[in-house]
Nucleic acid binder design. Sequence first.
DNA 1: AGTATATAAAACCATTTGGTTTCATGTCAA
DNA 2: TTGACATGAAACCAAATGGTTTTATATACT
Lengths: 106, 106
Amino acid sequence: MSQTAQKHDVFQAIADPTRREVLKLLAEKELPISEITSHFPMSRTAIAKHLKVLTDAELVSGRKQGREKIYRLHPEPLTELRRFYEQFWSNKLSVLKYVVENDKEK
Amino acid sequence: MSQTAQKHDVFQAIADPTRREVLKLLAEKELPISEITSHFPMSRTAIAKHLKVLTDAELVSGRKQGREKIYRLHPEPLTELRRFYEQFWSNKLSVLKYVVENDKEK
DNA sequence: AGTATATAAAACCATTTGGTTTCATGTCAA
DNA sequence: TTGACATGAAACCAAATGGTTTTATATACT
């Protein structure tokens, strides 16, 4: 269980639309599992599994409070998304090439 | 087979590390399938399937030229990635909240 | 014409994914 | 202490994913 365990990465974690929605919910405020579940047309167990994946990717963390488990967002890993995105769209030759070549076709 | 078919979306397309690498390759210049394949430890057929997924997500397109099929990058759909990212990290309350609350803990 | 090359298409396979149901456990409240 | 509530854990399942091998077809080269 090292710091680098990370069975699921960010890219995989956000591949599922339900998980993306969960992240949006948690961006507002932290929530217990049952609260989160109430926003989706599926079982609590299914949501719990999604939360497991998000936890693996270190995008959320849950703490037990009484009989509830409360999840909160950890947005940092999303910066990897940004880095990926910028390889293609930020001050990169590829973008220029793309734009130029597309202009030619018109 | 409408224009809106789009069986695979961008998030799903970039979930696989091989496909992310393919995109990086194509950011440099357009390439035929066999050329792309030579960069990976798997069969041409496997790469062709990855290219199919990327095509579904409209991240690449292929044109037949002689006996080769040449693929090129279409980076536009990646903006959806950016929009997603910015929901969490760009001038949003959630970020402020996150930072503030993290400060408190230290 | 015949051979090598580049891709396409299909069948197949193991593993992962995204869901379910069922049962067990811990906690709160009356 | 009894019952309701919130979660955990396990078994199960169908479909999707990521790969393979095999066979076919079109193009290029000599």
